[in-house]
């Protein structure tokens, strides 16, 4: 029984380590994306590109003045309805970066958010790996070192 548990923990740990392996990179491409900003949504709300790709965004606004601020890349661009804007950058950092409306556009303006995911999204893989390793480690610790205390489990209730 214990062996089954340890084997499962090992599998979890291996999955975590696999997540940490570097992924093979593909040749960089250029993405042309049109992002339309309207209360209170960017369409598309999620863009996925690979690390190293060039991203050319045509930004439009279809109801009121909006803006786009891209976390992590420190890009800011206002956009008026009817007059489109171009944003161009290289997705050199991996991870998920939110683009937020940067011009107050109404009540829910602070929550007008889109997501740029630069794969292979190493920070997310690392975070998942860290959680899996931590959980496996903590279960291992509990089974190995805390089980001897089990008979005195009632110590947890104090008078």
């Amino acid at each position: 029984m214990r062996m089954v548990l340890y084997a499962s923990l090992l599998v979890i740990a291996l999955v975590a380590l696999w997540l940490l392996l570097p992924t093979q990179s593909q040749a960089a491409t250029t993405h042309h994306v049109t992002i339309d900003a309207a209360q209170y949504e960017f369409s598309p709300g999620r863009i996925e590109v690979a690390q190293g790709d060039e991203v050319i965004i045509t930004l439009t606004a279809s109801d009121v003045v909006h803006g786009l601020y891209l976390d992590g890349y420190d890009i800011e661009q206002q956009v008026l309805p009817g007059v489109s804007q171009q944003i161009r950058f290289f997705a050199d950092q991996p991870g998920k970066f939110r683009y937020r409306c940067s011009v107050s556009c109404g009540a829910l303006h602070p929550f007008m958010i889109g997501e740029l995911v630069v794969s292979s999204n190493a920070p997310f893989r690392q975070a998942v790996a860290a959680v899996l390793l931590a959980v496996a480690g903590s279960i291992f610790y509990l089974s190995r070192f805390r089980s001897s205390q089990n008979e005195q489990g009632s110590e947890t209730t104090r008078a």
Binding site: D36, L80, V83
Partner: peptide, 20 residues
């Protein structure tokens, strides 16, 4: 033109206006 006309007539005069 951009301030007063583009929203309806389009930046390039295409006549394509905002979806809204």
């Amino acid at each position: 033109y951009q301030q007063n006309c583009a929203a309806c007539h389009g930046e390039t005069g295409s006549g394509q206006s905002l979806s809204t």
